[in-house]
Design a protein around this nucleic acid. Structure first.
Length: 941
DNA sequence: AGACTCACG
DNA sequence: GACGTACGTGAGTCTT
């Protein structure tokens, strides 16, 4: 197309320079793409990403406004004039990770393979070089496109509406101009430097003004004009923390402003004309692609035309990659106009027949509330194929009491027709988080069976990679943006319920839900077996869904009077503490404000303690306060006591009263099946998994969790389950013997490590045991035990020596996780760890610790989940139908049962829980279960 | 909305 | 050479 000798003749053609910010791209590609290796075993993830990016840019050549000139700019060294101004500039940046470093030369190879000019200058940052070339080109009347997404470079966009400079983000495939800057930063490109200077940039270690982020920065700049004006106006601002921060950091703000300014007058090593795009010769490119085995690109090269497809991963190199997120779907695009609103029984019957014929359907129940226990059914939707979906409105009103309700089938009649279908063994029901629908339909005595749950399937395939909400899955797997619930109902005070949404809108939304759910199921189910997710799905998580639904529905009885009594008592104690604290401080202040408290303690009273974090605030957490209390500061202990009471009152005794359901008189939590990446459940609204127990005062709250008259509470918990599993998984003979013999495991550990057993050594042994489970570091252990790092290291060494197997478990787990990207529990539950190869050391080490812990915590979760799924059938078989399972707290199950059933139920519960791993997994340690009973949850412990 | 603190296993 | 350090959660309060 373009060739060298045409440049002199087409002086009329608009010259357009593309400047590629290569360095920034490489780091992004490295973090975003899976850790690929090429056919020689060399890591090439970033190279592959970079190559596909250049390939994509080649498509730009065909466009009318495409590039006539192009060059790639790379950072050669990290030094520049900024380091002289400010020694901390980019000082915190870690070295590039080991598997990225060898890719830098390959990236130069790739650039040469495309016959593109490469600019890299000693002591000049790529950003400045790009700025300088941009200015030079614009001065010649050229257009410039900067291929990057770096916000600093956005300063180069011209403030006029017809800016000759724009930016292109090839990863997101978006062009960015003046409007992008205004949208993102609230100011035009010409003021961007002022905003960036004020807010700072943690990525480059530019400090800015503490406490000022993008929002505040743009507000200030819009109000005053630029940084200098803000600084000048600061003394007259009204008193606030922000004003103080500005006044204390004037010089720092000025420095930051200079640091973010791009240098536009760097010497240019090559002329603009030398960047003229010539034909790209095939040979070097072909050689490069062949060398790395980038087969799909090679194929495109052979075919001649470069198709602007998604750059997929070559089959030959992708074997260690996580499953590709977006799959091509053969189903037709989602078309909301095909959805039907079902308003009479005849039509409903047609849909029911259709579902029976298909053998599989998606279903979703719409209600007027998120409180599943008491929510009213507003409608039901179902899908039987792509774009084959309907909505059956049942409880819609007009929202206007004088107007008629829309035509709809009576709820009872429709549900009576749907019940046989929903319970039909020959029709698989697919839903997204069916736990909710099951709870709602339980009010109408309807089961949903058999079923598949796309939320659970996604969680079993991709835990750790992304969320599992339907909107997110739809975007990811179908490339489809769902109608948002909020767009129909609004938010806040003016929000309406789904019952008030007009039928046409409701049909579009609800039928789409079912349509999307069925499409997701088609995609996910095909992945289950090949990706080994079937086992944990079928043996652990799917059976749990109706069990959790039932527990939520049952709820737990909470004594409101008891809570109110505690609230009053806590309030009284807080009041007297507050007076004493204010007296000691010499002034009144808000004790609940960490900011004010820090300033009183460390500012006014002059106690010693350090600043922390970018916010520049004193830390006042319990470890700090207890240290002060230990130094004999009476105010510190009083604050600790006040804090405890305040926490207990607001989070528990006050909040819990409000959670008592008006209809049932009980508290119904919601368990999230995908809440914790390790496979644990989590509990919300309220969280019943963190009710106090560790302190005497807190424990009183458990006295309010009671049994109905004639009943008692029974609590059954696994004893040391995670340590037992660690002993089994890491095959530690000493520990296994100790558990088999029923020894106290922390005593045994103390014996092995310190050769003596007393309170002190047992306590330290316990700390070390937990540290092992959590992925130990000598620094972490040192801090906990208040010893120095060397001593901590010595203890770790002794531990590894005494308990061989632990060390091996850690290194094998990490190695396997680095290779595959995930860890596995004994039941095959996967947890993905994408940050295991992060360039950020803190991030990477954090992932390593999480990966060490996940198989143990996850196996424990698997086991108690299996126990839960088996519990109700086992109780039924033992003729104990009155026993209710109320709560799960990770290693504990809580029941409510008639007093007369205690002995028999205890046997069943203990048997089910201790044997929950079997027969799928045979453990080499016993699983002991402690059981207690009483009138309240407190007494049951 | 985000930081901070703290409740649980 | 500095940094921040145990794993997994949810929620209330204060501040911007």
């Amino acid at each position: 197309m373009t060739d060298a000798d045409s440049s002199s003749t087409d002086s009329t053609k608009q010259k357009h320079l593309y400047l590629v910010d290569g360095s920034a791209y490489i780091f992004r590609a490295y973090h975003r793409l899976p850790p690929l290796t090429n056919i020689h075993g060399e890591p090439v993830g970033a190279v592959y990403g970079y190559t596909t990016m250049l390939w994509k840019l080649a498509d730009e050549l065909h466009k009318s406004d495409g590039p006539t000139h192009m060059a790639v700019v790379l950072d050669k060294s990290s030094q520049s004039f900024r380091n002289e101004l400010y020694s901390e500039y980019k000082a915190h940046r870690p070295e590039p990770p080991e598997d990225l470093r060898p890719q830098f030369p390959m990236i130069r190879d790739a650039t040469r393979a495309f016959s593109l000019p490469l600019i890299e200058e000693e002591n000049v940052e790529a950003d400045d070089m790009i700025a300088s070339y941009t200015k030079a080109a614009v001065a010649e009347g050229w257009k410039v496109t900067i291929v990057s997404s770096d916000k600093d470079l956005m300063q180069l966009i011209e403030p006029s509406d017809d800016s000759r400079v724009d930016m292109l983000d090839t990863m997101k495939n978006v062009r960015m101009g003046k409007a992008t800057v205004e949208e993102k930063f609230g100011v035009g490109p010409e003021k961007l430097g002022d905003v960036l200077g004020l807010m700072g940039d943690s990525a480059d270690n530019i400090p800015g003004v503490p406490g000022i982020g993008p929002k505040t920065a743009s507000k200030l700049i819009n109000e005053y004009g630029d940084i200098e004006a803000v600084l000048a106006a600061a003394p007259d601002m009204k008193k606030s923390k922000m004003k103080e921060n500005i006044l204390e950091n004037i010089e720092q703000a000025r420095l930051s402003r200079v640091l973010v300014t791009l240098k536009e007058d760097c010497p240019l090593p090559d002329t603009l004309d030398s960047f003229l795009i010539k034909d790209i010769p095939d040979a070097p490119l072909r050689e490069f692609l062949t060398h790395h085995g980038f087969n799909s690109l090679l194929k495109k090269l052979g075919g001649g035309q470069a198709e602007p497809q998604n750059p997929d991963v070559d089959g030959s190199i992708g074997d260690s990659a996580p499953p590709a997120a977006a799959k091509p779907v053969e189903a037709p695009a989602i078309d909301r106009s095909t959805y039907e609103c079902v308003q009479d029984l005849e039509t409903l019957d047609i849909w029911i027949d259709r579902a029976r014929t298909r053998g599989v359907m998606a279903v979703d129940v719409e209600t007027d509330s998120l409180e599943s226990v008491t929510a009213r059914v507003v409608g039901v939707c179902m899908a039987t194929g792509p774009n084959e979906a309907c909505y059956i409105p049942l409880g819609h009103g007009s929202g206007d009491m004088f107007a008629e309700s829309p035509k709809q089938i009576a709820t009872d009649e429709a549900l009576a027709r749907l019940k046989p279908l929903l319970e039909d063994d020959a029709v698989l029901k697919v839903g997204q988080n069916l736990k909710y629908d099951m709870t709602v339909l339980a009010q109408h005595d309807i089961q949903i069976t058999p079923f598949d749950d796309t939320l659970v399937m996604s969680f079993n395939l991709d835990a750790g990679l992304h969320g599992h909400g339907m909107d997110e899955l739809s975007k990811l797997h179908l490339g489809h943006e769902c109608i948002s619930f909020k767009s129909l109902t609004g938010t806040g005070k003016k929000a309406i319920t789904f019952a008030e949404v007009p039928l046409d809108k409701a049909t579009e939304y609800a039928a789409e839900d079912a349509d999307v759910t069925l499409r997701l199921w088609e995609i996910l189910r095909l992945r289950m077996a090949p990706e080994q997710a079937t086992r944990v799905y079928q043996m652990v998580d799917r059976p749990l869904v109706p069990v959790i639904a039932k527990m939520e529905e049952t709820g737990v009885l909470v004594d409101r009077e008891e809570l109110a009594r505690l609230s009053r008592s806590f309030a009284e104690n807080m009041e007297s503490l507050e007076k004493e604290i204010h007296a000691l401080a010499g002034e009144t202040f808000s004790i609940g404000s960490p900011k004010q408290l820090g300033e009183i303690l460390f500012g006014k009273l002059g106690l010693k303690g350090g600043k922390k974090g970018k916010s520049g605030q004193y830390s006042t957490d319990v470890t700090v306060l207890e240290r002060l209390a230990g130094d004999g500061e009476p105010i510190a202990q009083k604050v600790v006591d006040w804090r405890q009471l305040s926490k207990l009152k607001s989070t528990y005794t006050d909040a819990l009263q409000e959670q008592i359901n008006a209809k049932t008189g009980r508290v119904h939590t919601s368990y999230s099946l995908s809440g914790a990446q390790t496979g644990r459940l989590s509990s919300t609204e309220p969280n019943l998994q963190n009710i106090p127990i560790r302190t005497e005062i807190g424990r009183q709250i458990r006295q309010a969790f009671v049994a109905a008259p004639g009943n008692v509470i029974l609590a059954a918990d696994y004893s040391q389950i995670e340590l037992r599993l660690a002993a089994h998984i890491a095959d530690v003979k000493t520990l296994k013997e100790a558990f088999a013999a029923g020894e106290d495991i922390h005593n045994r550990t103390a014996q092995e490590l310190f050769a003596t057993v007393d309170r002190d050594t047992r306590g330290r042994a316990k700390t070390i045991n937990f540290a092992i489970l959590y992925g130990i570091s000598r620094w972490g252990l040192a801090k906990r035990l208040e010893v120095d790092a060397d001593e901590a290291q010595a203890m770790i060494d002794t531990y590894f020596e005494r308990f061989p197997g632990i060390n091996r478990y850690i290194s094998e787990t990490l190695q396997a996780a680095r290779e595959s990207g995930y860890t596995e529990t004994l039941f095959g539950r996967k947890t993905w760890f994408e940050r295991l190869k992060s360039a950020n050391q803190t991030e990477r080490q954090g992932s390593e610790r999480a990966a060490i812990n996940a198989p143990i915590q996850g196996t424990s979760a698997d086991i108690i989940k299996r126990a839960m799924a088996r519990m109700l059938p086992a109780l039924a078989e033992a003729k104990l139908p009155a026993v209710k399972m109320l709560m799960q707290v990770h290693d504990e199950l809580v029941f409510e049962l008639p007093e007369s059933d205690v002995a028999a139920a205890s046997d069943v519960i203990r048997t089910v829980m201790s044997g929950a791993a079997e027969p799928a997994v045979k453990l080499s340690v016993p699983l002991d279960v402690d059981i207690g009973t009483g009138k309240s949850w407190d007494e049951a412990h």
